[in-house]
């Protein structure tokens, strides 16, 4: 089991580095993106916090159904105020200490990447945020469009799952569970 697990994480890492291509010649992909979008939303009693990043990097390898996505926490912008962004990075996500959020794993469903269409899939993997790894299954929509893949997903993250504590004084301003949305357009490598 262990060698497989290592491969699982290793392959997407290589993809992210843009090294080489994988799979048989006639297989679609692999695909990658450098500028996917991530939307962050915290809907607390007294305050709605929204932010976004356009620096989601990701890769999907159809030959083994693996994927890897990562975003730098400091790349989020669009907060209600500069102070809010500062709190977000320094107090909650501790961006200096934990600079990235990542999600790596496998797509459960077998998808025909050769055929255009919209597929409902579930991605099973490890979500790492604030230095804490959690196993997650995230329902996603995957659109095959020629040499492109468009990935859309929306999921929630309980802050407690990742040891992100909310100071009592601001607990009405930050939700205990935040929602994240992803939209990324991946291009087949070599196309």
């Amino acid at each position: 089991m262990m060698p497989k697990l290592r491969l699982l994480f290793f392959a997407p890492a290589l993809l992210l580095c843009g090294m080489g291509t994988f799979g048989p010649p006639k297989t679609a992909g692999p695909y990658r993106c450098e500028n996917g979008k991530v939307f962050f939303k915290s809907e607390a009693t007294l305050e709605l916090i929204q932010a976004r990043s356009k620096k989601l990097r990701g890769a999907i390898d159809p030959s083994n159904n693996t994927f890897a996505f990562t975003v730098e926490t400091s790349s989020f912008e669009g907060f209600n105020s500069p102070l809010q962004r500062e709190h977000f990075n320094e107090n909650f996500l501790e961006s200096t200490k934990y600079p990235k959020i990542s999600f790596t794993g496998k797509i459960i469903e077998k998808i025909d990447f050769q055929t255009d269409g919209i597929y409902s899939v579930r991605a099973k993997g490890k979500l790492v945020a604030h230095g804490v790894e959690k196993e997650r299954i995230i329902r996603s929509e995957l659109e095959v469009l020629g040499s492109k893949l468009i990935v859309r997903a929306r999921f929630t993250v309980p802050l407690a799952d990742h040891n992100i504590s909310i100071p009592h004084i601001v607990h009405q301003k930050i939700a205990e569970e935040v929602s994240l949305s992803i939209e990324a357009e991946l291009q087949a490598i070599g196309n």
Binding site: M1, K4, L5, L8, K106, I108, K124, E135, R136, I137
Partner: peptide, 21 residues
Amino acid sequence: GEGLYVWKNNRLYQFNAEDEG
């Protein structure tokens, strides 16, 4: 075809052959 799932503490987890043996 997809192995086994467990729903616990409002979260779904999967056991399959490749990942969990």
